[in-house]
């Protein structure tokens, strides 16, 4: 009896939903049609515009609509996968200059909608067993040229781009955390809870280059501020550093720019002259982040 009732209910519900959907479809198409009619009214003011195939055409002002590409998810997704041609981004971290100001971490967390306990870049205090001192080491994602995280992702959510940046598409991420386990640098973190200011970002279109809005149940990590690189700006952490720790640039140009002093130097010379090293080279991950060793303390 109760089972029959339930069935009946679900059928009724189904019919009701069908009705609502049908009504809204009719209403929606009516609205759309109306919109089309409105836009067909010419104002008489003509402007000349250049089309994508380089033709000059005259269009009525009333037919023009603001291009809102930046709010178009599909456009952002394609752009994020494509990357910036001809570039190979690298970072150089001068450990001798890091004084644990942690401005990089703050700038990063506010840009990427991260809670204080979540890090895309983390400044760690390292023990130097030889000199019996400690030094500070900022550790972002290493953007490996042979990324273990990308090989293990079962859904192609994390991927490497032509400009060397490893990104996450949280529209695809299923939250399996294989990549978190695979990363030897512990560069990835997981959104166990609703991210910071979730309501504020609810309406924002997802941009994988910024990885905002963050989504509960997905993995997040440093993106080398790919959104800033696109407009020719240095990453958030690099420009926030007050101590000149970070150099950032393009390995193809062999030039890196210091985020604090804005001085541009040759990458190869900087690495050679300062005995640069990468983290865990024995794993063959080929990181894009280089470290210059901390200065010998005379104490």
């Amino acid at each position: 009896m109760s089972k029959a009732n339930k069935n009946d209910n679900s059928r009724r519900n189904f019919l009701q939903k069908l009705g609502i959907a049908g009504a809204s479809a009719v209403a929606g198409s009516a609205l759309l049609l109306q919109g089309c009619n409105n836009s067909n009214k010419a104002s008489g003011n003509k402007v000349k515009v250049l089309t994508a195939d380089n033709k000059l055409v005259e269009v009525d002002v009333a037919h023009l609509q603001p291009g809102d590409k930046i709010k178009d998810l599909e456009y952002l997704q394609d752009r994020g996968r494509e990357g910036i041609p001809g570039k190979k981004f690298v970072m150089v971290v001068d450990l001798a200059k890091c004084k644990n100001a942690r401005k990089c971490m703050k700038a990063c967390q506010s840009a990427h909608q991260l809670k204080p306990e979540m890090h895309h870049i983390n400044v760690l205090e390292m023990d130097d067993p030889v000199r019996h001192t400690s030094y500070y080491m900022p550790k972002p994602c290493q953007h490996c040229d042979n990324p273990p995280c990308v090989s293990v992702c079962p859904v192609d959510a994390t991927f490497k781009r032509q400009d060397g940046i490893v990104l996450i598409d949280n529209e695809r991420c299923i939250g399996c955390r294989f990549c978190v386990a695979a990363c030897p640098y512990s560069a990835r973190s997981f959104n166990w809870t609703e991210p910071k200011d979730a309501e504020e970002f609810a309406e924002v279109t997802y941009d994988m280059e910024l990885n905002v809005p963050q989504k509960k149940g997905t993995v997040t990590k440093c993106a080398f501020s790919a959104d800033r690189l696109r407009v020719g700006k240095l990453p958030y952490c690099v420009s926030a550093c007050p101590n000149g720790v970070y150099y950032f640039g393009d390995a193809n140009e062999d030039l890196v720019t210091n985020g604090t002093t804005k001085k541009t130097v040759r990458l190869s010379a900087l690495l050679d002259e300062n005995a640069a090293y990468t983290l865990m080279p024995e794993l063959g991950t080929k990181p894009s982040v280089y470290y210059l060793p901390p200065r010998q303390s005379k104490g």
């Binding site: 570039k87 690189l229 240095l234 950032f248 640039g249 140009e253 030039l255 720019t257 804005k262 541009t264």
Partner: peptide
């Protein structure tokens, strides 16, 4: 100067 992506190299 060479114009790099993020700055000028002398």
């Amino acid at each position: 100067f060479v114009k790099g992506s993020f700055g000028k190299y002398l």
